[in-house]
Design a protein around this nucleic acid. Sequence first.
DNA 1: AGAGATTTATGAATTCTATTCATTAATATT
DNA 2: AATATTAATGAATAGAATTCATAAATCTCT
Lengths: 313, 313
Amino acid sequence: MASLSLLELRHLRTLAALDETGSVSRAAKRVHLTQSALSHQIKVLQNHYGLPILRRQGQSIELTEAGQHLVTLARKVLEEIQATERNLAKMSEHASGSLRIVLECHTCFDWLMPLMDAFRQNWPEVELDLVSGFHSDPVQLLEEGSADVVIGSEQIERRGVVHHPLFRFEILAVLAPEHPLRAKKILHARDFAGETLITYPVPEERIDLIRNVLKPAGVQPERRTAELTVAILQLVASRRGIAALPSWGLKNYVEHDYVIARRIGSQGLWSDLYVSTLAETATRPYLRDFLVTARNTCFATLDGIIPLKPADQ
Amino acid sequence: MASLSLLELRHLRTLAALDETGSVSRAAKRVHLTQSALSHQIKVLQNHYGLPILRRQGQSIELTEAGQHLVTLARKVLEEIQATERNLAKMSEHASGSLRIVLECHTCFDWLMPLMDAFRQNWPEVELDLVSGFHSDPVQLLEEGSADVVIGSEQIERRGVVHHPLFRFEILAVLAPEHPLRAKKILHARDFAGETLITYPVPEERIDLIRNVLKPAGVQPERRTAELTVAILQLVASRRGIAALPSWGLKNYVEHDYVIARRIGSQGLWSDLYVSTLAETATRPYLRDFLVTARNTCFATLDGIIPLKPADQ
DNA sequence: AGAGATTTATGAATTCTATTCATTAATATT
DNA sequence: AATATTAATGAATAGAATTCATAAATCTCT
């Protein structure tokens, strides 16, 4: 198979990202390159094929017919590659074992469930489990050997433990549509004074809003807890209080005017999500595959999240 | 589609070449890189997947199971890419026109026929033809506009005309199995003295053996001509004389002991094959596709040929 | 309207990495 | 045994992809 083709997988990866994000700069974040790099890549391809691949449509972009062709190719090819890489992974050592997940982030259930289903299909020989209950020191579970991965927002520095960044997300304040604060575009610490805060049943220091915003400002609202995201939203909608939740989980409820969402602070309140494992576990092929598919499904499903660069890249 | 995969198409192209040639150095020639470059590529892949991709088997190599997986992937992916690149090519301008081929090299019929069939399938809108008859100045046909492509062994420097190297091949002397010269491993100019040389019906200066070997040595054997390769071989087998033909066309006949083949001169007599077109024609997408598939099929079908680096690479 | 924020495009500089070069060890050929 | 091939490897190089700096265009919000 002679070349005379300068096409590389890197191009296909950007094409796919371009299609998924609909913008050069968002696509750039997705593939962990600069917007400029992608712009150059596109230019090279367009020159090579003598055809425009994307058209600038006002602020954003639109793929041309040629671009669509390439995206279709990209999808097919990248999927085939992932499939054979999985096969290769299964041929290597440590191809089986257990993946017992501790979920620190309650809202993550939303995307974790379908992910686990997909993973179970691809790795039937791996023992997949969800470790339930609250744990004051989840990383310790790794060290004890009673769990394999922790999904959470903290990078607890402990030797022998590795943190794999997943994405950055925004935490929004959630109010009933009729709430007096609805007039404000942005909520600040003092706005929470006198309100009831509805949270998951976890200690204060695990709640970003309290730890990073309210506590420093000396604001201490009442608290009320609920186990499930829907329960929290129900309480908010029935005007029992305010909640603070990741933006992605709110989309549907906001669109149906069940609740309204507001930014917290002028820059917004952001948090990073990590997958933490023992260094040893990190080398396991099925763990690497889990990470890849986790990123893929999250970027595909969740709106408004920002890719974080994997440590090993 | 996140990365975490360092695999690139370049690797897949190498893998395919490795499988087809069964040796690192031959594969390197095929993809126009050094043996060292491929060795490094392989090393990187092996480290990345933690699996051996090929095993050194004495002098040559053998693909491992992992290697086979990757080769299968490579085949599929590279084919899909070529398909969509063809689609893109058809969307560009100049996607149709004519491809009238002048064949200077008679033996090339062998591989040109199946190639033309394949091409006709892929480019039904291109008028494909074979320009028959002998032409003293084939390149002139290009300039006159009565042909589009010349397949031959000479790089005639003429402005506006481009030569696309295909491959280098060896010309072997062909003898009847009982011929007295059979004892010699290598034939030299003087060995041809007193023999009858059986050739295609073309002028002396078009016959490499005469021009490059016999004439310089002052040897002038008798000549007898035949139109078809089989006819020439038939004459040789029935001891009417000696012929000089490209090695690839001889394989079957030699294996069945119909004739025997001998190297000419200690280094062998080699010739390069070019596809010549007008510079303008060279940019046509269907011409580029023709070149790519020509190289592919030749390398896949013909034994003992050496890849030549395309001018535009 | 105008200021500010965000988007893509582009040329130049830089960094990175794939390839070549030079060499060795191993295997095959004569 | 001598010679020619083949693959592997570390260091040097060349080349190309990416970043940086910037401009032009578009959108948003007072």
